[in-house]
Design a protein around this nucleic acid. Structure first.
Lengths: 130, 130
DNA sequence: GTTGACCTTCCAGTGGCTGTAAGGTTTATA
DNA sequence: TATAAACCTTACAGCCACTGGAAGGTCAAC
């Protein structure tokens, strides 16, 4: 299978697949006689795995750790679980940050007339020393 | 006032202040005879404004738009309000994404034994075609 | 034989900084 | 007065995770 088939089956772009190979996240693909990269079901599985890991918030370094667990038949499932719980905690932290930012924005918007005049609580609050 | 004083008063780093000048977000600072950048209260206000705008989620392009409103005495407060409400909507969207990611992670963690064995629902779900 | 859809490599750009190097200036201390 | 430290300057590289584009090779259909 050529790279574009691997891309559509895995959910990654061809650019991203080549990039993952460049940075050593996946092994260099086999090559056909014409130099085209060739992918089998197993490599597509790994690519899809990476796409899903990224989708739920893992960065490439963490995704690589997970991939190494997937590849290792002697793995311990608790290692994967630790990574997932830690990522979940990080997401929770980020969510709280975003909620707080959103709340600040709503408070500013509520205090701003939002009319044709220049008086604006939003601008005043952003410029204020806190 | 030198750049490090402006930095500590505004909440930006000296690096960031120079960077904002480089990209034209703020006007080039006045220079003392020795070539050092000089800042007055007004420029510190603008820097702090930018720091706060970034803190609540605006990117540099949006922060610049807000800064231009701040500088313009003929501004209409509704323009600021529109930007704030739109950013709030974007944050809400991002929060929903993160919540969904977190939920997926929790579901995977719940299904994973997290023991010394290799069987792992997390890895199985990440590799699965969906 | 030519069009168009693939594929290849390589380089540059994105955003928002941060780190580092190599130097100049100022201030405090010995 | 020497020197050390704490400033300041510019310039360039690196971070993350791609994405876009150029310039060219290959393949299938008409």
């Amino acid at each position: 299978m050529n790279i574009s088939a691997a891309a559509s089956r895995s959910g990654l772009s061809t650019k991203t697949i080549r990039y993952y190979e460049d940075i050593g996240l996946i092994a260099p693909a086999q090559r056909a006689q014409n130099g085209y990269r060739q992918y089998d079901e197993n490599s597509v599985n790994e690519l899809r795995f990476l796409a899903h890991a990224r989708d739920v918030g893992f960065d490439l370094h963490e995704s690589k750790q997970l991939l190494e667990l997937l590849r290792n038949p002697k793995r311990q499932s608790r290692h994967a679980r630790v990574l997932v719980l830690e990522k979940s905690r990080q997401l929770e932290e980020r969510i709280q940050q975003l909620l707080s930012m959103r709340e600040q924005l709503m408070m500013m918007a509520n205090r701003c007339h939002g009319d044709e005049g220049p008086d604006c609580a939003i601008l005043a609050e952003l410029v204020a020393d806190r």
